[in-house]
């Protein structure tokens, strides 16, 4: 086990290096000139060259990458061209908001998914079951911006239950979390339904039910412990899905997280921020995958860590 984890960590490192190289190549192939952006409209050609030199943009690409990579080792993600601030500071200042949103989303996913899934399972093949399952599939199929806008207008603007936009209190967190979590909730509902049905088939559960064991207890005592591991594995994989979702959801709800930072950086071709965010996101995804893989053998003993 420790050997496996170590090997995976080395692999992760290689993956991240690969990600950084590819992102570096792509961002530097973008058709915009950072030196001119920094130097401003009034700059003469000489001033632009000066800036190019100062920011090391006149070096050959491999050398630029080496400079960047050296910085990375020291935890330096470079400086934003636009904000003139350390990228690591910008990301660090926004990471908590995004993590909070992700936590909220995971909570919503589980709450919605587990409840809906077990309800459907207990009423298998009834209209309720079908309704829940179609609903789940519907949320899996709905573009997140539609969900986000609908929640915003219905619950904030019309009903006034939640603040329109912003960050800071619990009520600010609710709608963005739901918007981000509904999609995953659909998946969890489907998964929960099948694992509940499986448990319900088992003899001892049938007996227990006959004896009058409540549904909630069955779910808590018998279904969840078995279903927990696949859920953990799925949460690990969720991180990748969230990375896309936050760009849309954060912008609709004015959530001060990584997603908005990323989108602004892309609009202004602020390469160091794009690089930094991609790397941080890649780290998160790789760690999430590792988590999922570590959990896998616990779920199914036939799977061995090699």
């Amino acid at each position: 086990m420790p050997g496996y984890v170590l090997r995976r960590l080395v692999q992760m490192l290689l993956t991240l290096i690969g990600v950084s190289v590819i992102t570096f190549l792509i961002t530097h192939a973008l058709p915009a000139d950072p030196a001119r952006q920094i130097a401003g409209r009034t700059a003469s050609a000489a001033q632009v060259e000066q800036v190019r030199h100062q920011f090391g943009l006149d070096l050959p690409l491999p050398q630029q990458y080496l400079r960047y990579a050296t910085g990375l080792i020291e935890g330096d993600l470079g400086r934003s061209y636009v904000q003139r601030t350390d990228v690591s500071f910008l990301i660090a200042s926004r990471l908590p908001a995004t993590l909070l949103l992700m936590l909220g989303a995971i909570f919503c996913e589980l709450l919605i998914g587990l409840t809906a899934g077990s309800v459907a399972a207990f009423r298998r093949n009834t209209a309720a079951d079908q309704g829940v399952m179609i609903g789940a599939l519907f949320f899996v199929s709905t573009p997140q911006f539609l969900v986000a806008y609908t929640l915003l207008y219905v619950f904030s603007n019309w009903l006034g239950w939640f603040p329109l936009s912003g960050y800071g209190t619990f009520s600010h967190l609710v709608l963005p979390s739901v918007a981000l979590g509904l999609l995953g909730g659909g998946w969890y509902a489907r998964m929960m339904r099948s694992s509940t049905i499986e448990v319900l088939r088992q003899d001892f559960v049938r007996t227990a039910r006959a004896k009058g064991l409540s549904r909630t207890r069955i779910v808590l005592v018998h279904v969840l412990p078995n279903g927990l591991l696949p859920i953990i594995a799925m949460i690990g994989l969720d991180i990748g899905y969230f990375m896309s979702g936050i760009v849309v959801v954060e912008s609709v709800f004015g959530w001060p997280g990584i997603g908005q930072l990323t989108w602004q950086a892309i609009q202004t071709i602020d390469i160091p921020i794009i690089m930094g965010v991609t790397l941080v996101a890649a780290c998160a995804i790789v760690l999430g995958n590792l988590l999922a893989d570590l959990v896998a053998p616990l779920i199914d003993p036939r799977i061995k860590l090699k």
């Binding site: 692999q11 993956t15 991240l16 690969g18 990600v19 590819i22 992102t23 792509i26 961002t27 192939a29 973008l30 058709p31 990748g240 990375m243 896309s244 760009v247 990323t262 892309i266 071709i269 794009i274 965010v277 991609t278 996101a281 890649a282 995804i285 790789v286 995958n289």
Partner: peptide, 18 residues
């Protein structure tokens, strides 16, 4: 694996901008 590690939307946005 490397491609899995990319945030898909981000990669798509970058490629589209390129």
């Amino acid at each position: 694996d490397l491609m899995t590690a990319f945030p898909a939307l981000l990669l798509a946005i970058l490629l589209a901008a390129m």
